[in-house]
Amino acid sequence: MWEYTDKVRDHFLNPRNVGEVEQPDAVAEVGSMACGDALKLSFKLDENKRIKDVKFKTFGCASAIASSSALTEMIKGMSLEEAMKLTNKDIAAYLGGLPDEKMHCSVMGKEALEKAIANYYGKPVLEEGAQIVCECFGVTDTEIERAVRENNLVSVEDVTNYTKAGGGCGNCHEKIQEIIDRVRAEVRPAVKAKLTNIQKIKMIEETLEREIRPSLKHDGGDIELIDVIGNRVIVAARGACAVCKASDITLKHFVELKLRDLVSPDLVIEEARS
């Protein structure tokens, strides 16, 4: 049995905005019966060009229905520019998370939204130059690339969970791996080139200043970089952080993750003991 959150269950059992908008400004259909899920999205804008009315019809499992319902709730009242920025991760987060194998349901929501907005602007639907990689589920290279980039996917199995590509005959696994390798090579150029110690310290200090201090200061705390020895980043908690019992967690889960993400994946945070 799938472990669905209460929110997924709620949106499946009591789906919001089921149906089709009358005289819609935009309509889109994604998926197919063969794939096992499909979503038809339609919306209408108000005089300020914000989404006034939005409805869906979905063929698919509980999480596909819940993702569609969540999507309609989320985009109601948004401008198209705002709606464009919505990612599949936002849909999954709104639902309190989806099982890995079901992430493709949130991707389907994102695709329908994109296609509907393109339909509104009268743009062609299939992105130019896109090639079908997975014949079984009709997934293109651009769709796979985007899923890899936005969700930081590392394996073919991840890609299958998020896009369904590779979930059928398996003939495209090699091509999917090539896409993953290519995207990952672009995404982390900073990691590939080995940083000198000076560069590393500079980047850490910049990241602390830009990404971390503002949120710490919000709570009356601060952080000071003491030293960088290899991949060990020695810091000291200051202000409210120095007396906060949760500062260990802040350091490990927030500061370290940020630094690993933005500077180098091998960094380890250590607190200077005075």
Binding site: G60, C61, A62
Partner: peptide
Amino acid sequence: VEGEGILLLLDEHGICASSGSAC
């Protein structure tokens, strides 16, 4: 329709069945 939805709605009534659907 898709089998998983059928099973979960049956489950709401305490009815246990299974499905050959993909999901």
